[in-house]
Design a protein around this nucleic acid. Sequence first.
DNA 1: TTGAAAGCGCTAACAA
DNA 2: TTGTTAGCGCTTTCAA
Lengths: 344, 344
Amino acid sequence: MRQRRTGRGGGATMEDVAQVAGVSAMTVSRVLRQPELVNKDLRAKVEAAIRETGYIYNLVASSLASQRSGTIALILPTVASSIFSDSVKGVSDVCRERSVQMIMAETNYVPAEEERVIEALLRRRPDGFVIVGVSHTRATRDMLEKSGVPVVETWDATATPIDSLVSLSNFDAMQAMTQALVAEGYRRIAFVGTATRDHRALMRARGYEAGMAAAGLPIPDILAAGDVTSMGSGAAIAEEIMARGDRPEAVVFLNDVLAAGALLAFQRKGLRVPEDIAVAGFGGFDFARHLIPSLTTVDIPRQEIGRRAAQILLDRIEGKAPAGTLHAVGFEVALRESTRRVPR
Amino acid sequence: MRQRRTGRGGGATMEDVAQVAGVSAMTVSRVLRQPELVNKDLRAKVEAAIRETGYIYNLVASSLASQRSGTIALILPTVASSIFSDSVKGVSDVCRERSVQMIMAETNYVPAEEERVIEALLRRRPDGFVIVGVSHTRATRDMLEKSGVPVVETWDATATPIDSLVSLSNFDAMQAMTQALVAEGYRRIAFVGTATRDHRALMRARGYEAGMAAAGLPIPDILAAGDVTSMGSGAAIAEEIMARGDRPEAVVFLNDVLAAGALLAFQRKGLRVPEDIAVAGFGGFDFARHLIPSLTTVDIPRQEIGRRAAQILLDRIEGKAPAGTLHAVGFEVALRESTRRVPR
DNA sequence: TTGAAAGCGCTAACAA
DNA sequence: TTGTTAGCGCTTTCAA
């Protein structure tokens, strides 16, 4: 003869509520999930019993029984920077609207870490994944495909998505920015990217190169920032640029954070922006429009990317959308004071 | 006679692995959780079987059986702004180090929403809560206490924490800032807070008032920003201040985001900072030191707050720390160029 | 060191 | 409309 395990987890269970209400556990479950199927009087009794017992529904048990966890996983390069926070907000808002819990993990821009992180999250049996980026290790793709979990990739473009894709062409966007600067009359345009092999960063660099090539312009050295999420490294790059002999007329940065750090560093050293050096960023962040001079950038619908990705994913999970959905979001080059062409 | 439910969730289970390895499921479980208890050869066999079957451990089932979910919940006012992102990073880092999953929800600074959100998260049976703020509805406190889940509150101070507390005195910090400005020679010092009844914001306002009172200075109208997370509303407040007749010598803002927005708006309108108007923020954010002029602020160990809270919580969950742990974090007034006293 | 049995708290499938 | 039964995939407990 065995004794009861530990006397139970703690709080009331559905069974307890059922006893108090004088019904079966199944009826309690129905009251909670499909109240319209339950007789009104019984429903009231059950609801009273729930209050009386202080019952809190157990989603862990529910997940196991129903084989649906009611969670989606969000994989992003970093949680600490402002870069993805609007996209997180987009996903998070949709999740709340649709009563799903978002669980999040960061990869630090390292594919091997992404692999580890996705494997760890798979153990929690999320109903789907939203992933920032389209470049993954072979093992990551295999794992995801084998698991059969719906996936939406975002913030980048690819011809071979794992499943669905909220597509943003970093190449096109940075090419457009470069061409806009060329149209403004700039010729010696430098680019600041990153040394990490982040695919989105690479695509932006390529877009810049394509923009320069299309205009028949030579491409100066491409500089690499260390930490792409800090203004400090933008400032460090600015120092580097100022220390060189041949100062470019304009510098395009991988993102607005780096650009802002550099813009302020240039000014600190007495350079006038844009008269002495023009500065452009990428991302369309709030602070860009407030800076003096206001920062030219490529405006991206960051929150919308998160929203759309979550919507597509949840629709798919609920069977309301097919696999392999594609949705492209646009971008807009916002020319502002930091690149206003002025006579020299 | 019933048929098997749906032919099973999908992937391999522990039982499948056990069959392949020729052992019992219990042995597989041990290999995964306490490998040192299992014979070396058997262990190797089981590990091979895991690889062969592509088995992915199911934490949902594990959580239900063990009555521990391996997750902690993080409740914060907003996820979209930079204000808490370092604290999120702190919690998130500790969680990764200790193999725990963080789940997050936002309250939008509204206590009733906090109540809803906490109840929703309780259904997932987190092993503990980290909560930003110490002001909660009665029902929230009751729920949390009744659930018996360890709680760590943060980012504020209180004499009556629910359980543990990583304490930061917003009152003291803002009082110190105010006194520092007085010491610099400022007299007509205004304060910009918020109309929401956020407790931390309130404490900062009170700290400012105390600082002014201690110096025997009158308190001008306290202005209220709408959205405390956007530079735009800082700029709007700046407009309001400039439109008034009696311009203050210095303005202290609830946080650095508002201060930065205002600082730039002042400059746009031709005011010199700090000569015409001095500006101070709160929070010690990265961008504050880069602005021109660099922004005076109260430096808070934001990431450390997250780390400590998570550590205390996890220690408590593992029985390595007592309930009701108190940990106070400090702050530092960073006087920078935006409040450098200059002769008029 | 290994295994068998009995749940954890819920839901799917079926029956009444 | 309500209830019964049999799991979901794991861990706890006990026995060997």
